[in-house]
Amino acid sequence: MEVRAYLTGQFAKPEQLIKAYRDRAKGKISEQTLDEVLRKHVREVVGVQYASGLTYVSDGMLNWHDLFRPIVEGVGGLEVNGLARWFDNNFFYKKPIAVGELQFRRSITEGYVFNEYVKHGELKVILPDPFTIASMSENQYYKRFEDMLFSYAEILAEHVVNVEELGVAQIQLSAPYMAFTRLSGDEVEMASEAVREIRKRTRAELLLHTFYGPASNVIPYALDFPVDVVGVDMTLSKPREVTDYSITKPLCLGVLDGRNSMLEDVRALVKLCKRIADDAGLRLLHVAPNCELELLPYEIALRKTRLLGELNKALGEVE
């Protein structure tokens, strides 16, 4: 079976890096020392992905405080307010607030993407999907939600253009909101059109990755989105919630649980993936953790990455 395997979000932060951030905040260490610690761990996270044989390699997003922050920092017209819960996790993000017309000012390639450690053409970059970031922002400026949504889409499209120049192989749009909440027909249409603005600007493989909710909230419409791959959270989905539909494009099965420390049994995952591939008639399968590994301790995130490598290899050997 042809398989592609990769991570799907921010990697867990190692203790040494956390300490470095705290020390920097207190003025105990310089920006340069912090950068050295950061880069050391970026190399380690990239290294474990290469050693595990993953198809695309992410830099681990170790300096992203949350999925939105680097985007917010590079946009005029946005501020961040207090903390808000990140879906149903014991994890909080700083809520973006649109206080003016959104204007692209700085690319994430300036300080938030470490492509130098990844071979050209193997880099994976992750961005929020426009509907997710818009839905989780507060709108104090635009007359309509739709206006803010498409402003975000424009901003994200600019980022996509910038990362494509780095030799990116896959761009992931993280769309947890789409799985956590069942969108209405109008919302689906808006969300799809917003993604189209991004699609227009890149030829890289585009993955719409949904998580924190069942595939049944997503599959009925997401296959029609202008993307190459659709990702679903199999840690919260029955296989039938995927295979009951006519699958018209490659799926990314989020089968490793990024929210629990228990290590999965690779044989059981192979069986699950094979069953879904067979029932859905898929010849190409993408496999991944269901979500970011940031909600795990660093050592466990490393072990889950190696496990993903084992799954990739085992599935590759399946006829």
Binding site: E15, F92, S261, M262, P297, I300
Partner: peptide, 17 residues
């Protein structure tokens, strides 16, 4: 205890299984 996990920014706690 399994290790430290992030709650926000540089705030973490030691999480057990």
């Amino acid at each position: 205890f399994r290790g430290i996990v992030k709650v926000w920014d540089s705030e973490f706690y030691r999480k057990a299984a």
